[in-house]
């Protein structure tokens, strides 16, 4: 599990981006992190990944095999000369993951085995996202962190990706933390939502979040459950 206690974070001399976060993530949960642009979601993820260090407070992380799926590579150089097999091989070597068939197996999980020899620049957004999920699954992770997995992906691929993540969470008991702008997907799949606004986070369950969201945006209090 992850236990965050009294955590504050700021970049160098600027004001606090995250203020006094207290939050626990239980094993096997599916948590979506919501919030507006610039609310500190990505910073929060980087803190969980140890890419940043909290200004004060601490994070206790007991997960040993953390995998990260970055936001769809907006900055991905489509001319980069690398095949899908090479992307997965260098990940396998870097993480010292044993097994000769591991690349084929992880590609089969996302139904992308036919693209093993394809160049990364020839893939669509959804296919790219699936490859990065396949890469993350190679080390049999116990914690999967995703940054906006549906960004720039068509509806069909979105459904496939979310189904895959949900299966991993429910069948293999992989803990999932997902930064989301896709409210529908977050409410449909998550066991818990964590909403960050102006650096302050609060936990809510999906149904409460819909009610609060509707009241805030439409003033409607009665709603039909999704």
């Amino acid at each position: 599990m992850i236990h965050i206690k009294n955590m504050y974070f700021s970049y160098e001399q600027s004001s606090y981006i995250l203020k006094n976060l207290n939050f626990s993530i239980q094993n096997g949960s599916y948590i979506s992190i919501l919030g507006e642009n610039g609310s500190g979601k990505s910073t929060f993820i980087k803190l969980l990944l140890n890419l940043l260090i909290p200004t004060s407070g601490h994070i206790e992380n007991t997960f040993t095999r953390t995998a990260y799926v970055p936001q769809r590579f907006e900055s991905l150089n489509t001319q980069f000369p690398i095949t899908i097999e090479e992307i997965l091989t260098c990940y396998q070597k870097a993480r010292h993951i044993p097994g000769k068939k591991i690349i084929d197996d992880s590609l089969a999980l996302v139904k992308m085995q036919d693209y093993k020899k394809a160049l990364v620049g020839t893939l669509s957004g959804g296919q790219c996202q699936k490859i990065f999920i396949a890469r993350a699954l190679m080390g049999n992770p116990d914690l999967l962190i995703l940054d906006e997995p549906s960004n720039g992906v068509d509806i069909k691929s979105q459904n496939e990706i979310y189904q895959l993540i949900k299966n991993l969470n429910q069948e293999k008991k992989v803990t999932v933390i997902c930064v989301e702008h896709n409210l529908k997907a977050a409410i449909k799949n998550s066991t818990l939502l964590y909403h960050i606004a102006q650096g302050v986070g609060h936990i809510c369950n999906p149904q409460d979040y819909i009610r609060e969201y509707l009241i805030e945006n439409t003033g409607v209090e009665n709603y039909v459950s999704i």
Binding site: L51, Y68, P70, C90, A94
Partner: peptide, 19 residues
């Protein structure tokens, strides 16, 4: 070779992977 390739393609991912 593999660490360099990984780092150039995805520096953040390489950092998370312990390179």
């Amino acid at each position: 070779y593999h660490s360099l390739m990984f780092m150039i393609f995805d520096e953040e991912g390489a950092k998370i992977s312990g390179i």
